[in-house]
């Protein structure tokens, strides 16, 4: 695979919950238009780590971050940087589909733009349709855009959340176990989606499912007990990992 430029980079990132040291010295690089998977056993810190990438970690009371996260070369933790502007450029999809309960399908997708001050109906309509198409949901909802977002099925809700995140055109999209609550068919749809979306956005995805990581990612990082053990091309991680702990994990000896 041709090497593309580095869009996101972490330098010795440490994350804490109060006194608990959840992430230790993680340095990683994410290249444009690739999918990077974070794998590892429950509680290894992979979700915490991706929440440091868009400054969501600090939303938890008592949580803090040390180290640098460079987005296009500038540190998002520099004093004076507004987390709101970072989150507009680094979107996020959560483990559990969380459409806004009081809003229609249309308004769910339009929310990011509307609440950032975009009001032109024509622009919003265009963006909503484009985002829903990108999320492979348009055909299923185009006749009921006014229905509540929560009226959709679980898999559709998750794709709605993906459309909502894409609507603000973030260059990077974080996905925190986006399929762990979905059935295999919905999961397959989202995996397909991820592989298409990487033409437009850089994707960082946390997954419990090693087959999923193998299927959809270009790079894979293995986390264990708050440490990033190794990160490499996915094909290499799953065939000849350098670290014995990685090998033990992917061969199912623990985790």
């Amino acid at each position: 695979m041709a090497q593309t430029s580095i869009i996101l980079q972490t330098k010795r990132v440490n994350a804490y919950f109060g006194k608990v040291h959840a992430i230790q010295d993680v340095s990683l690089e994410f290249r444009s238009n690739t999918v990077t998977a974070m794998i590892g056993p429950s509680g290894c810190g992979k979700s915490t780590f991706i929440r440091t990438l868009n400054r969501m970690h600090e939303e938890v009371p008592g949580a803090r971050v040390e180290g640098e996260v460079l987005l296009d070369g500038s540190n998002i933790y520099q004093p004076g940087v507004d987390p709101v502007s970072i989150r507009r450029r680094i979107g996020m999809v959560f483990q559990k589909a969380n459409p806004f309960p009081s809003l229609s399908i249309f308004d769910n997708v339009a929310a990011g733009l509307k609440l950032a001050g975009f009001q032109r109906r024509t622009v919003l309509q265009e963006v909503v349709e484009r985002s829903l198409r990108q999320a492979a949901l348009w055909d299923e909802v185009k006749d009921k855009l006014k229905a509540p977002g929560t009226s959709l099925s679980g898999g559709q809700q998750q794709r709605l959340c993906i459309a909502r995140a894409l609507a603000v055109s973030p260059p990077v999209l974080l996905m925190d176990e986006p399929t762990s609550a979905l059935d295999p068919i919905s999961t397959a749809k989202i995996e397909e989606l991820v592989m298409e979306l990487k033409n437009e956005v850089t994707i960082v995805i946390v997954t419990h499912n090693m087959q999923q990581a193998a299927r959809i990612s270009d790079h894979t990082a293995f986390f264990l007990m708050g440490e990033m053990v190794e990160c490499d091309l996915t094909s290499r991680i799953f065939t000849k990992p350098r670290d014995s702990r990685t090998e033990n994990y992917i061969t199912g000896r623990f985790g």
Binding site: N54, M56, F94, L115, V168
Partner: peptide
Amino acid sequence: PVHIREAGLALGIP
């Protein structure tokens, strides 16, 4: 629920 607030914040909404 917290996850609804997080969804909003993660969209870059103040």
